[in-house]
Amino acid sequence: MILVLFAIVVWVLGWWLNSRLASGPYADTRLVRFLAPFIFGVTIIVIWELLVRGLEVSLVILPAPSVIAVRFANSLPILWEDFVQTIIKGAFSGYIIGCFAAFLMAIAVDRWDFLRLGLLPVGNFVAALPIVGTAPILVMWFGFDWHSKAAVVVVMVFFPMLVNTVAGLREATAMQRDLMETYAATYWQSFLKLRLPAAMPFIFNGLKISTTLALIGAIVAEFFGSPTLGMGFRISTSVGQLSLDMVWAEIVVAALAGTAFYGLVAMIEKAVTFWHPSQRG
């Protein structure tokens, strides 16, 4: 019971600290912008730990953060293998193939009006569908190994990427197009020098959305069949064995991989679209 009371104290303390930071003179500094969410996160984890211990919550319902951390540290080789199988082989290769294919298709769609009129509504429609559902079919076609996961990822990232790139390639204003016309520029000159750079913010938007979709696709596809490794496989089998600490360890890996992947793309975006108002800030 003491621990539960202690948890309440920690919550009040954390909140009080953040209130002081938020209303203090340094509220708009970078340090506070980093510190406040950090304090909030630490508070949550400490309360989680205290409540699980204080209320003696069963390990099969919610393991304490310390238990998860220990499991994480002890299973690094397994976690690494799963990471390579699911993220590197499945998600990453599918992401590259899917985004690149969508980019090429977007160029074709942009070039021929008929394709844009016909394919774009279909693409918009498909982008809103539960595409993970294709996983059982693709697993049947491409086998249990990572190839089928990559295929699911390709299908998942293709349409959002297509729609974003096509929108981006149409972003150049009429005046900018007229300027290229007055130079008697060829199609490819105006594509490379005007439309592609102007499309970059949109393309990166598609690339960023696709990072999360790629991870979702690769992990969920493993629920439909996989070799005896991979993050989705580990999650579903560990859930079956009620070793939830392992499940949480995998989720930590997924979270780290997700943020790192997204962060990487966002960093490249910052370097490429430094000129865009949203990046100048």
Partner: peptide, 28 residues
């Protein structure tokens, strides 16, 4: 306060495949 402490986590959550939690939620 909520803006400073919660909003960054809400944004980060968008980059994480939180659907991986699904099987555990069902079983728990």
């Amino acid at each position: 306060v909520m803006d400073l402490s919660v909003m960054p986590w809400a944004i980060v959550s968008q980059t994480i495949p939180i659907i991986a939690l699904a099987p555990m939620i069902i079983v728990v």
